[in-house]
């Protein structure tokens, strides 16, 4: 008891020693979406290790950039920014790089991006027949780089993707793809390494991805599909 009182006393002293600083906290929000300029639809992203919005606050030398992440559907929002002007660009993404733009961020500032994805996944279909989950799709690549690999990714979280998966069926391509070729990927739910990971009675999300072979590129995706196993 004595000891607790002592600790409390010390804490009190410690806290009273700290005067609240007199700087304003961050008040500004930057939010928006990233769109495929061709299809005018949201461009699907990864929640971890995905494309990021790079913002550099003006007025500092050698400034440390900040990076805002996207949600999987291509929306982003950060409400902890200081009001100021910034250079803003989505970078290291699954789209052809774009130039940064100068933006004044104050209050709630909306900034949408319109970009061309490296790869469009066309006519995606994910179906399940018994223990086999099958994905079919074609690829329209928008740059002449090789497609490095394609994959069907599975996770219990709806934000499934190449970095966030419990299992995957991947295929290396390493070539320029033929837009007419229909790709097929399957996951056998009863395969030895999978049956203990994707368990019956739970819901899992499956998502088709394709990765271009370009500097710091991220995969392009179709929308995830859920199955109750």
């Amino acid at each position: 008891m004595k000891r607790t009182a002592y600790i409390l006393g010390m804490l009190l002293i410690a806290f009273s020693a700290c005067k609240k600083d007199n700087y304003d906290g961050p008040t500004a929000t930057l939010y928006g979406n990233i769109y495929d300029a061709g299809t005018k639809t949201l461009l699907e992203q990864d929640i971890i290790r995905g494309s990021v919005v790079e913002i550099k606050e003006h007025g500092w030398e050698n400034v440390q950039p900040q990076w805002l992440i996207f949600k999987v559907d291509g929306a982003y929002e950060n409400a902890l920014l200081f009001e100021n002007s910034y250079s803003v660009a989505p970078v290291r993404g699954n789209f052809i790089p774009v130039e940064p733009q100068d933006v004044r961020i104050a209050g709630r500032t909306q900034l949408d991006f319109s970009v061309t994805p490296y790869i469009r996944i066309v006519n995606p279909s994910i179906t399940r027949a018994g223990n086999i989950v099958t994905a079919t799709f074609t690829l329209q690549q928008q740059v002449t780089n090789n497609v490095r690999k394609i994959g069907l990714y599975a996770h219990s979280d709806f934000r499934v993707g190449e970095p966030l998966r419990l299992t995957a069926a991947e295929q290396d391509i390493n070539a320029v793809t033929d837009p007419a070729h229909v790709y097929t990927l399957t996951i056998d739910l009863q395969a030895p390494n999978i049956r203990d990971i994707l368990k019956p009675g739970k819901t899992y999300y499956f998502r088709i991805g394709a990765l271009i072979d370009a500097t710091e590129s991220k995969p392009n995706y179709a929308k995830a599909v859920a199955f109750d196993l």
Binding site: I96, P97, E99, V143, D213, A214, T215
Partner: peptide, 16 residues
């Protein structure tokens, strides 16, 4: 190294 060098360069040029 054509694809590595030119791939994104070309597409980003066209976009610009």
């Amino acid at each position: 190294n054509y694809a590595q060098v030119a791939g994104v360069e070309l597409a980003a040029d066209i976009q610009w």
